[in-house]
Design a protein around this nucleic acid. Structure first.
Lengths: 336, 336
DNA sequence: TTGTATGCGTTATCAC
DNA sequence: GTGATAACGCATACAA
């Protein structure tokens, strides 16, 4: 491994000068600087991130906590897309991404412990159990951080605007003439609460009665439970004309159930999803859904975090809401 | 940040002793060691990974290169599953995972440059363009590495056994009485070549003629191109009785095309996928497919890499083939 | 069993 | 414009 020392010897200058030249300091001779940079490149020099971090107290690396109980975190397209966007945005600013875990070797270590061990400059938290004491400890650790889809007091949060998203989706369905709209929602989280409240509010606004029978609970990303809920809805004497699913993937469960009953979408019943994953675009009929802007969520999270890291004194935490957009598929029929 | 020095002062012992005690060296007094550990814990001490790495020349972090041209890498369930498994396996052995990119800040940097900069102990390469000079440079860099689904001479490779996988799938289809089997394969990669060769070999073995018209090229993870290929197949006067798709997700394109023709799976035509992603399990009829063991691939890759890292002298590179298993869905009809 | 000393590669301060 | 030097936090060879 070639070091500054090697370069300095080869150039007959001091390490200090080499360091300055390579870091683009102004107080070094034009000619010297050029010579040093040439030799560095010829020798195949790479700075040592560890040494640099040790000295500057900045690791230029960001920890990502992406872990839910079921472990589907990364399998969920919404999150893998966020991760990808996060990756691109941080890399372009010179930060690397490392996963945070709670074990480092055989030693059990808290998330916070891990973050301190690696000297992460900042942390991004998503898709976790936000009640988990370990997560709370991390949130409270003082490390710059951005939380996704959840709000902690005086911490930066980037959230998908579920309120307006659900509103827009519901408005669309209502505009198509539907009055009997069922909503199968996911397990109880703040995201779910927002969507449900927005659904109810939008219906009320149009004086559409909310039937308790039309509100069902299922589990996100779990076609089975949504299938079950669908079966219950289809068994009602007064069936809904449209069903909204927790997410696009869950709809597959409903789709199978609907077909089993011999119904055709959207002729006999209309459906809508949420997320706008690839699948929704390739299904036929195309699924009407609300696409969350995962790319933007990741990008903004990265930008805000780095802003916080680089201007710790002046940075002011805020909650950023990212709007998505309706994808008008072919799964919601216009009722006459 | 509390350091060894803080502990040593608080304990009235030298830094060296503290270091030894915390690292579980034997040559330190029972009582002293206990006292030191208690104080360390009370003070909330965490080792500084940078300092440790600088000193020991081991970073305990592994770089992962996961990047294809289309950027769908992480969105592909097969890869996100591998990544997840990799993550679990490396973390339990005390290694963290960081993504490798080719930019660090505004400075463009090669993959190798990045890997050296971060002093990765090892590297895992997957889902990339294996002809890319940057990738070749990394492979040749001397850094311990494991390559997934591709074999470089004298480098450890973990590959999904596409030969036996395709063979098993084809055998199954043949055993159901099919003789007119079409194969839509992905773009030209070694994986594709293996699957295609295995398909042809298995057919030959059963004296089933290989019609050129039945072999179509599409693109992995791209329902559109598979849909197109399906259309061509269905337009043949002598249609196949079964179509094998490049992967489960691509089948969606074929599914739509088949439905457009008014055919029912598997009554009118049989189909099979490859991968065994979640989707294949929730589709109706359940998709017959071959499930690649992504979990095991990730786990073995991690194990081998760490073995290599920790025993550089005695480690011998090898190619490990990971077998998957047939998922007998309901999409292949028994012909009488 | 404990302590002293050294250096890993870098940046930064200050003198020249 | 350049260089000597200290320090970052830790692990280790060696001395006591």
């Amino acid at each position: 491994m070639v070091t500054l020392k090697d370069i300095s010897e080869s150039c007959k200058v001091s390490v200090a000068t080499v360091s300055k030249a390579l870091n683009g300091q102004s107080d070094v001779g034009e000619e010297t600087s050029r010579r040093i940079r040439k030799v560095a490149s010829d020798l195949g020099y790479f700075p040592n991130a560890s040494a640099r971090a040790l000295k500057t107290n900045r690791s230029h690396s960001i920890g990502v906590l992406f872990e839910d109980k079921t472990g589907t975190g990364l399998k969920h397209e919404y999150f893998s897309e966020i991760l990808d966007s996060l990756k691109v945005a941080t890399e372009s600013r010179g930060y690397d991404i490392t996963f945070i875990s709670n074990s480092i070797g055989r030693n059990q270590m808290s998330y916070t412990g891990h973050a301190r061990y690696r000297r992460f400059d900042g942390v991004i938290i998503a898709s976790v159990d936000f009640k988990n004491p370990q997560v709370l400890e991390l949130v409270d650790s003082g490390i710059p951080l951005v939380v996704l889809d959840y709000v902690f007091d005086s911490k930066t949060a980037v959230i998908s605007d579920n309120v307006s998203g659900m509103e827009e989706l519901t408005e669309y369905i209502i505009s198509k003439g539907h009055k009997k709209i069922a909503f199968i929602h996911g397990e109880d989280t703040t995201v779910t609460q927002k969507r449900l409240a927005s659904f109810i509010k939008t219906c009320s606004k149009h004086e559409i009665p909310i039937l308790q029978d039309y509100i069902k609970q299922a589990v996100y990303h779990d076609p089975k439970s949504s299938g079950l809920a669908t079966r219950e809805l289809l068994a009602l004497t007064d069936k809904p004309t449209c069903i909204i699913y927790p997410d696009d993937f869950s709809y597959i469960g409903g789709m199978n159930e609907i077909e089993k009953h011999g119904f055709i979408v959207p002729k006999d019943i209309s459906v809508a999803g949420y997320d706008g994953i690839l699948l929704s675009k390739v299904l036929r009929p195309k699924l009407t859904t609300f696409e969350q802007n995962a790319e933007e969520i990741g990008r903004i999270a990265a930008t805000k975090l780095i802003e916080n890291i680089e201007n710790p004194k002046t940075y002011i935490p805020e909650t950023v809401s990212v709007k998505g957009h309706l994808i008008e598929g072919e799964s919601v029929k216009a009722l006459s």
